[in-house]
Amino acid sequence: MIVGNRKDFKEILEKLGSRRRVLVLGCNECVTVCGVGGEREVGVLSAELRLYWKKEGETFEVREHTLERQCDYEYIDQIRGFADEYDVILSMACGAGVQYVAEAYKTKLVLPAVNTTFLGVTIEQGVWSERCQGCGNCILDMTGGICPIARCSKSLLNGPCGGSSGGKCEIDNETDCAWQLIVDRLKESGQMERYEEILPVKDWRTGREGGPRKRVREDLRL
């Protein structure tokens, strides 16, 4: 899923400026699962805004609304009936959702309330960890199902660097060395011969370095 962090309340207030009619827009997908932008978080941010503005004695209107997704036009269209009543749409979706809402409501100011951070997994309730960088050319078959692009701090392709110590990365002692994990996994699964294969220099053009990406499946188009 896409994981993010809520922006500081102070930063959100600064971005809102003098606008007081706010539509706080949540998303029921990834940001709900990672506890940053679903219905509950929309409720918390809205309550914060109401408490703050009440304290300041201001007149305001905060509406809470959560869409099934903010990355599909059909759902974004559901707020068309009332979006115009607000000065600003405060989107709690990932960066994709914020942009798609802004695209759909060109005359509206759409602000992000979330910093989108990574593609990851739930380690346990309340803990998430990065697993994928969307490089566009998956090599997990070669690395025992552990991604050195996303999980090695240097994205090394052929074994660990000198900073690997006791199975941990030199950036901090809580971060596992991805290559230690890979070697352990290859050993466990009897695939150590894969470690002998040298991975060639990666062609990063399939990733972000190749520019914005687009996918088309003609058979699915209407």
């Binding site: 509950r40 409720g43 918390v44 309550a47 914060e48 109401r50 408490l51 009440k54």
Partner: peptide, 10 residues
């Protein structure tokens, strides 16, 4: 719940 406490303050 967090919201329960916030609602009280509201």
């Amino acid at each position: 719940d967090v919201l329960l406490i916030l609602r009280a303050f509201e």
